[in-house]
């Protein structure tokens, strides 16, 4: 896995963006950008050669599930690995996210070990 890969962290709560960013830094990732909802994230993704998207679900403007759909519908972004880190914990939501093509799903509250494990797993699959 390339530690220099470009990661976009999307969450409407700045506290959570900061926590995820710090955890990613601890895991050795340094090339991290932020967006506060799907609407601001999508143009960034379209321009920016991102290698990995970490997104919340429940956000004003454009939700994470709609962002995931938009990513999968865009020919240039369709294969972008997407990890959801969200407080949304209903089974139907996790099933929906899986159907829409999410690569990993973490429910808040979570910890650094879980984040590392899911990222490792996602890139194991992507690279194999």
């Amino acid at each position: 896995m390339d530690r220099n890969m470009k990661i976009l962290v999307v969450d409407d709560f700045s506290t959570m963006r900061r926590i995820i960013k710090n955890l990613l830094k601890e895991l050795g990732f340094t090339n991290i950008e932020e967006a506060d909802d799907g609407q601001t994230a999508l143009p960034l993704l379209k321009q920016g050669n991102f290698d990995f998207l970490v997104t919340d679900w429940n956000m004003p403007g454009m939700t994470g599930i709609d962002l995931l759909r938009a990513v999968r519908a865009d020919a240039n972004l369709a294969s972008l690995p997407v990890l959801m880190v969200t407080a949304e914990a209903k089974r139907e939501q996790i099933v929906l996210a899986a159907q829409e093509g999410v690569n990993g799903y973490i429910v808040k509250p979570f910890n650094g070990a879980t984040l590392k494990e899911k990222i490792d797993k996602i890139f194991e699959r992507v690279e194999s």
Binding site: W57, N58, T63, I65, K90, R91, V107, K108
Partner: peptide
């Protein structure tokens, strides 16, 4: 609507909610 996100669930929520990772 689940689509829009329904926010964090309380610890005693029903079976349709996951309890942990």
């Amino acid at each position: 609507r689940a689509e829009d996100g329904v926010g964090p669930q309380l610890p005693n929520a029903g079976d349709n909610v996951v309890k942990n990772q």
